[in-house]
Amino acid sequence: MSPARSDRTRRPVDLRQRSTMAGEASAAEAEVEMALDAPPDPQAAAFFDVDNTVIQGASIFHFARGLHRRKFFTTRDLASAAWKQLLFRVVGSEDPEHVAEARASALAFIKGHTVAEVEALGEEIFDEAMAARVWPGTKALAQLHLDQGQRVWLVTAAPVELASIIARRLGLTGALGTVAEHEDGVYTGRLVGEMLHGPAKAEAVLALATRESLDLSRCTAYSDSINDLPMLSLVGEAVAINPDARLRAHARDAGWRIRDYRTGRKAAWAGVRLGAAAGAVAGAAAVGAALRRKR
């Protein structure tokens, strides 16, 4: 077997391993704000995807637009990053080469910048661009779990720093997100494992459930995307929120609850999904480009 062919055959295994690493790393990095008293239902929890599930559109794209308004980078930078990541999210989500390209573009420019810098920007931009875009219906569902004494985590491909800000502002327990490696508070330019996408989300939930002694059969998961089927299939109850067409069909077949908080969904479906995907996948690449311009 030639070296090139051998490399191709190993890639799917490598991606599964990286998903496991990403899940374990995200669980380890999860921001957990425990109450002084033990919750009355400590074995049950809820897991919410973020983009188009909790927040209208893509959280990372709102962040990138906030940086753009601050003249941190050009429209061309944003468009280029969005296109590369769009291939990952929509066209090649399971293709090893697309995954590798998405990872490379996500980390190309973040190296050498501080976690504190990203967190400070995230706090500002949440207030100006994200707070008003939280779906009231989804927020009410999360609050219902909290009122029942359950813990609630966000699970997203967005950077864990941004995810944790959103969770904290919404009064949730914590967040699981993509973990960028950092040493002494400075990003190294490497991810820990893989982007928290698809199977990696399920790995993160499994790792967290083990750490927190959760009974997954008593847990609930919420998402808008068929890409989150691995996470949705882990728990006792799955709910489709503002679902894409494939998840809607799967949810109907499986007897899952469906909640759609959008208006004019059928007329605007194609534009909403494409715009959301482009925003979501602009991801860390757009953020990294912004940080490089600032530097």
Rank of each mutant, 00 (worst) to 15 (best):
A79M: 11
S80M: 11
S80N: 12
S80F: 01
A81I: 01
A82N: 04
A82I: 03
A82L: 05
A82E: 04
W83V: 05
W83H: 13
K84N: 04
Q85W: 05
Q85S: 12
Q85V: 10
L86C: 09
L86G: 11
L87S: 06
L87C: 13
F88P: 01
F88L: 14
R89I: 14
R89T: 09
V90K: 08
S93V: 06
S93Y: 12
S93C: 09
E94T: 15
D95H: 14
D95Y: 09
P96W: 06
P96I: 12
E97P: 01
E97M: 13
V99L: 04
V99C: 08
A100K: 13
A100C: 13
A102S: 14
A104V: 02
A108Q: 07
A108T: 09
I110N: 04
K111F: 07
K111V: 14
H113R: 04
H113F: 00
H113A: 00
T114A: 08
T114D: 04
V115S: 06
A116V: 00
E119L: 08
E119M: 05
E119W: 03
E119Q: 09
A120M: 02
A120R: 13
A120E: 08
G122V: 05
E123P: 04
E124N: 02
I125S: 02
I125D: 02
F126D: 00
F126A: 06
D127S: 07
A129L: 15
A131L: 08
A131V: 12
A131T: 02
R133N: 03
R133Y: 12
R133E: 02
R133A: 02
W135V: 03
T138F: 04
T138H: 03
K139N: 03
A140N: 11
L141R: 03
L141H: 05
A142F: 02
Q143V: 04
L144P: 02
L144K: 15
H145L: 09
H145T: 11
L146W: 13
L146P: 08
D147G: 00
Q148F: 15
Q148P: 12
Q148I: 11
Q148E: 14
G149F: 08
G149I: 00
G149D: 05
R151V: 02
R151E: 10
V152R: 03
V152D: 09
V152N: 01
